[in-house]
Structures are given as C-alpha cells and as structure tokens.
Amino acid sequence: METLSDTPIPSQRPPTPKTFHRWFIALPFLVAIIWSVAGLDITLSRLLDAPGDAWLIIKQMIPPAFGEVYERGAVGKIFESVYIAWIGTIIGAFASLPLAFLAAHNVAPLWIRSPIRQLFNAIRAVPELILAVILIPVTGLGAWAGTLAIGIHSIGTLGKWACESIEDIDEGPIEATEACGGKWVSGMRWGVLPQVMPVISSYWLFRFEINVRASAVLGMIGAGGVGSELVSQLSFRNFPAASAVLIMTMAVVLTIDTISAAVRRRIIKGAETTDEESRTLQAITDLTGIRS
C-alpha cells in the first residue's frame, strides 16, 4: 500500500455522481402503472377470483374431445386456415416484389420511392383483423375476405423487408449491366434479383408462418378458418371440444413453423457463413430493427 500511495499523481477521488435522475425515469413508470391498472376495473375480488375461474375451466378442458370436433369438420377448418395463409402470402409476395424495387433508395428515384414507402408503412399499421372488418361487407363472409386481408397486410411487411434486402446488395453487378448498355429493368433482373432472391423467398416463408396464426384468428370474426370453430365451442361452453380445437391448431402451427424454418435454413445456407446463433440474432435485428 505504501508504494501505491507514493505514486506521484496527486489526484483527488471524484465525487460520487448524483443519481437523482433515476427517479425521473422511475416516476413516469409508477404513474403509468397506477394509471393503466386503474383503468382495468380491477377489484380485489376479481383479482383473487381470476386464477380460480381459470383453473375451473382448465379442469373442464381435460380430456379434449378430439372425436367430437373431428366429426364437426374441425380438421377441414384448420386446413382452410392454412390455405388462407398460403394464398394470402402468395398475393402479398407477388404484389410486394415489384413495389420493393421501386422503394429501394439505391435503385429507385426519390419521387417514386417515397410514396411507395409511405404505402408500405400505412398498410403495416392496419392489422389484418381490421382489414377483414372492412372487407367482409364487400366480399361477404368467408375465406376470401380473410385471404384478401392477409394478402394486403403482407404487402406492407414483405415490401419493407424486400426493400431493405435490396438496399443491402453489392451494387457492382448493377454497374456491370449499365456498362453493357442494359436498361433499368435488365439491371434489376440480372444485377439485383439473383442477389436478393434467396433472402426474399425466406422472408416469404417466414411471413407464411406468421400468416398461419393470423388466419386462425381471422376466423373469429367470420373471415374463414379455424377461429370460428373455437369461438362457437367457447360460446357453447363446450370446453373439451374447445381444447381439442386449440391443441390441433397448436400442432399444425408448430409443424408448419418447424418445416418452414428448416426450408428457410436451407435457402439461406451457403449464402451466409454465420453460425446458427448469430443468424437468429440477425433475424431478430431484421424484424425489430434492434441491434443487440
């Protein structure tokens, strides 16, 4: 210790930084908690009863009545949800691809790309369910309303993702097509498309996974698919049947997730040399715009 204090730097210990600003952050949080909870008409009795009520229903859900819902055609309803998601994704993919080229800042001029970007943002802001609410009176109840709702909503996200992957490309091949005397279209077709197609098609598959969930929900308001089945079983308080529908839906969703994720890995493999973990993080970054 002697030797340390002998060092010729006569520095003073800095004062501990004041930490009162923490309270400035904590205070709005407290206010937000109190304000939001106050609006949810929570009474002590409700809070205490809720777990019991939930448990009562869970008890009634076992065992699930698979036979009964099978006879009612629930399997067909689940497949209808998958069809809706599939066709909706295809509509979204086909409509968004050309638009994405017109929205990317490295290949499209400002006057065209800014309105298209605004269009993507506007579409993304409206949930499928709201689109379906508007579309059902126009197309009538049924699967086509749900398909259109999913297709339209997918244009927004797929367009944004495709546009971002176009902005990430190596621009050398575009220069090469220009130097060969090619037109803009040729530059896009031969300079850009081969580069972005693997990434974009894996986005399509990813969107399909999301759309399967979305189309299951759409049935709840009559836009086709398994949602209507769940709603009616729950309103009849036929809990064994409801849990069977729920479990079947989960099984289909998880199966599709697994297959689609495997296909996506194969598409992207070879393109990126990153290991599995950082690729997951990359996907999160792509989805949320958050870099960790």
């Binding site: 050398g172 091949p173 220069e175 090469a176 031969w190 300079g191 081969p194 580069q195 197609m197 693997p198 393109a271």
Partner: peptide, 8 residues
C-alpha cells in the same frame, strides 16, 4: 471487383 452476379 469483377462485378459478377455470384448466385447465377
């Protein structure tokens, strides 16, 4: 940098 389209 050659400017080839690598994926085709």
């Amino acid at each position: 940098t050659f400017n080839l389209v690598n994926r085709t």
